[in-house]
């Protein structure tokens, strides 16, 4: 298991480092439009004549810098929600309502509207992407929290009169972590993909900034005549996906092994 996690992390690290070094938004040049991969342009050029390899590198960094806050925010807010509502009985009405509300607002619609509020922006994008995930986290947490509370050290602590907050931080949170680790990674990769879909509809990242999603969205219209514009970023995404999967499965194996 250790090996798998390490391998996954290594792949991600490799991709990030390479991206860091070759990241560049590129300069538009009509004469270089849609050139297939060559020595000067390892991944070819895009519809505006920009070097694709540089843009993919930049795009990886941008996609990651969106996905990371989204998973963090979803995680933190989800945990907070679970904590806030775990005081009363299990599935009580307001909690259910809130989580149903968030689930029913399709992120696409939300992003379209947020876009229309005053134009695209990274903050709005992150907000739109986070909202859909929070109820899931909260639900997962809730379930676990209930179990953890009614048992062992947490129960003892509550009988001794220790405040709920402290119980939460010392006895419950540590046990949530590995479980949520896998969830966080799932949200991470899902955010990259949802951002890609939003870019396709025209409300993803602001235009000058490439993200893997927007590169794919640009490339799909020339898919048949310039396949490298789709295939190369797709391979990068697949590599990221596989690496993340390795980390997740490594984590869950170690999680189940320790039980």
């Amino acid at each position: 298991m250790r090996g798998r996690i390490a391998a996954g992390v290594a792949i991600i690290a490799f991709i990030v480092v390479v991206s860091f070094f070759c990241a560049s938004p590129g300069i538009a040049d009509g004469s270089l439009r849609l050139q297939s991969p060559s020595l000067q342009h390892i991944a070819g050029t895009d519809t505006l004549g920009r070097d694709l390899a540089g843009r993919i590198g930049y795009g990886v960094l941008v996609s990651f810098s969106i996905a990371l806050p989204v998973s963090m925010i979803s995680l933190i807010l989800g945990i907070i929600l679970a904590f806030a509502f775990s005081g009363a009985r299990t599935l009580n009405t307001p909690f259910l309502m809130l989580s149903d509300t968030m689930k029913s607002l399709p992120p696409i619609l939300l992003a379209l509207f947020l876009n229309a509020l005053s134009g695209p922006g990274m903050v709005k994008l992150i907000a739109a992407l986070s909202i859909g995930n929070i109820p899931n986290i909260a639900r997962l947490c809730s379930a676990r929290v209930i179990v953890l509370r009614s048992d062992g050290p947490a129960l003892a602590a509550s009988l001794m009169g220790i405040s709920r907050g402290r119980i939460f931080i010392r006895h419950i949170l540590p046990f949530l972590m590995p479980y949520l680790g896998a969830e966080a990674i799932t949200i991470f990769s899902a955010s990259i993909l949802t951002e890609a879909s939003l870019s396709y509809l025209g409300c993803g990242v602001p235009p000058m900034i490439p993200s893997i999603g927007s590169i794919l969205a640009e490339g799909r219209s020339v898919m048949l005549s310039a396949p490298w514009m789709i295939l190369i970023p797709a391979v990068v995404l697949a590599a990221v996906g596989i690496a993340l999967e390795m980390i997740v499965s490594g984590l869950s194996e170690s999680d189940s092994a320790s039980h």
């Binding site: 993909l193 890609a196 879909s197 396709y200 794919l216 697949a238 596989i242």
Partner: peptide
């Protein structure tokens, strides 16, 4: 399944 889940749905 990892490949399918790694690629955006429109792809």
């Amino acid at each position: 399944s990892v490949i399918i889940l790694s690629l955006p749905s429109f792809l």
